[in-house]
Simulated scan of single mutants.
Amino acid sequence: MPSANNKADLIAVTIKEFAKLQALLAQLPPEFALVKEDDVSIKDVVAHRAHWIDLFLGWHADGQAGRHVHIPAIGCKWNQLADYDAALCGRQMDMGWDAAWGALRKAHAALGDFSDDTSDLALYGVPMKGAGRKWSTGRFAEAAGASHYRSASKYIRARLRTSG
C-alpha cells in the first residue's frame, strides 16, 4: 500500500486502519486478548502500538523544541529494537486489557488531534525536524499510526485463525 503524501490521505488512512483494528478487537473476549502465544498476547500488541504513537509524538515535540530527537528511543538504536520491545513488554506486563485498549484509544485520539492541527506543509513539505532522516513528519505519523494498526490487525487475524 503506498504511503500517504498529504494531510487528507494521512487522516483517511489512519481512520480507516483504526476502524479495522477496532472491529477486530470488538470480536475478542477480553480473556482471549491476554492469552500469550510465543510469549506475546494481543494485549501486548495493542499496548505496544499505543507506546509507539506516544514515542512519535515525543519525537515531534522534541524536534520542534530544538531538543535532540532520540529515534527510536533514548539509549536505543534500531538494531537494538528487539531488546527495547522486550523491555517494553516487561514494563507493560501488569497492564490489563482495559488499560491497554484505553491507552491505544487515547494515543489514537492524540494522533488524530496532531494530524488535524498540523498543516499539510508541516506534515509533508520537509523532513521531520530533528529526526536526521528524509522522512516527513506525515510519514512518521503514518508509520506510528496506520501502519502499526495494519500490522496489529494482521497479527490478530492470524491469532483468531489459529485459535479455531
Rank of each mutant, 00 (worst) to 15 (best):
S151F: 13
D94P: 00
E142P: 11
K106E: 13
N79Q: 06
D62C: 06
H60S: 15
Y155K: 13
G130C: 10
A73L: 04
A87N: 11
A82K: 05
A143F: 13
A103Q: 03
G112A: 06
R133P: 05
M128R: 01
D98R: 05
I71C: 09
L121V: 12
A109R: 08
A109P: 02
Q80M: 11
S153C: 13
L111T: 06
I74R: 12
L121S: 14
M95A: 02
W97M: 07
G96P: 00
P72R: 01
R150A: 15
K77N: 03
A146S: 15
V126R: 15
A110G: 04
C89H: 13
W97T: 05
D98Q: 12
L111P: 10
I71M: 14
K129Q: 15
L121C: 08
Q80V: 01
P127K: 02
D120M: 12
D116R: 06
G145Y: 01
A122W: 02
W78H: 04
A100N: 05
A141M: 01
K106A: 15
L88C: 10
S151H: 12
Y124M: 04
R150P: 04
C89N: 06
A103L: 02
A99L: 07
A131N: 11
D83Y: 01
D120W: 12
M128H: 02
G75W: 04
A73F: 05
P72F: 00
A61T: 12
L88I: 12
H108S: 10
A143T: 13
A87W: 09
D94G: 09
M93W: 03
A86I: 10
L104S: 14
A109E: 14
A73D: 06
A107R: 11
A82I: 11
C76N: 04
D62E: 13
S119P: 10
C76A: 11
G75D: 04
K129L: 15
G96E: 06
G102W: 01
R139N: 05
G138R: 03
S153I: 09
T118F: 00
R139V: 12
A131D: 09
R139G: 05
G138P: 02
R105W: 09
M95Q: 11
R105L: 15
R105G: 14
G145H: 02
G90W: 03
V126D: 15
K129Y: 03
C76M: 07
L123P: 00
A141R: 01
A100D: 03
L111E: 08
Q92H: 09
G125S: 12
M95R: 05
R150V: 14
E142M: 08
C89P: 01
A109Y: 04
W59R: 07
